[in-house]
Amino acid sequence: MTRYWKPLALALALSATAPAWAADCAVEIEGNDAMQFNKQAISVPASCKQFTVKLKHVGKLPKAAMGHNWVLTKTADMQGAVTDGIAAGAAKDYVKAGDARVLAHTKLIGGGETDSVSFATSALKAGESYSYFCSFPGHAGIMKGTLTLAK
């Protein structure tokens, strides 16, 4: 009877770690009413084919007053994407339609809301500098961070 326990224990141990593997290809980031993300850096494992970012607005203010989104660009493209996003307006989530500089973005959300975006990591290159930010007018100056593709 004990010879069955070892394979069973191994199977249970492996299945218990499976969600941790999946979690490596996703991250949750929070934005608040003080225009802050709770993470200043995100590292994407090179083993991930897709990566998911879940944005959670932990504040209470509505999106018209303190909306947040999560936008990813190459660092060199950030300012242009911010400027064009502001011109696009709230109806477009402050992201210019069809902007090739924008690698991924969530929709604009208000207090208590969440949104997620998944993107193919094949668009990322090791050693390239990427920035994420909130493109709501006036937020990108302080509400930003760096994203890297881990080796």
Rank of each mutant, 00 (worst) to 15 (best):
Q50D: 15
T17W: 13
A23W: 14
C25F: 11
L14N: 07
G31C: 08
V82S: 03
L61N: 13
A41N: 05
A91V: 04
G31P: 05
T75V: 04
D84V: 04
W21N: 14
A23R: 14
M66A: 09
K74W: 00
M66S: 07
C48A: 06
F51M: 12
P45I: 01
A81E: 07
K56T: 14
L61S: 15
E30R: 14
A20D: 13
Y94K: 09
Q79K: 11
F51N: 12
K56D: 15
A41D: 01
K39P: 00
G31R: 01
V82K: 07
V27F: 05
A34F: 05
D84L: 13
K54A: 08
L10K: 06
F37W: 07
D33W: 01
L61W: 03
T52M: 12
A23M: 04
A91D: 15
H68P: 00
L14F: 14
A23S: 14
G67Y: 01
V95L: 10
V58Y: 10
M35H: 06
A65K: 15
N38L: 03
M35E: 08
K54E: 15
T17I: 13
L55D: 09
H68S: 08
A65W: 02
K92Q: 15
K92F: 09
L8H: 04
Q40A: 09
A34S: 04
D84I: 01
A18D: 13
V82N: 08
C25P: 07
W5F: 12
G80D: 09
G89Q: 10
A65F: 11
H57G: 03
W21K: 11
A26Q: 12
K63G: 01
A41H: 01
N69E: 14
P45R: 06
Q36I: 02
F51H: 13
S43T: 11
A26G: 12
F51Y: 15
K96N: 13
M66P: 02
A87H: 11
K96P: 10
L61D: 13
V95W: 04
K6G: 00
E28N: 11
M66Y: 05
K74N: 10
S43V: 10
A11Y: 08
K63D: 03
V44W: 06
A88Y: 08
A64P: 00
T17K: 02
G67L: 00
G80N: 14
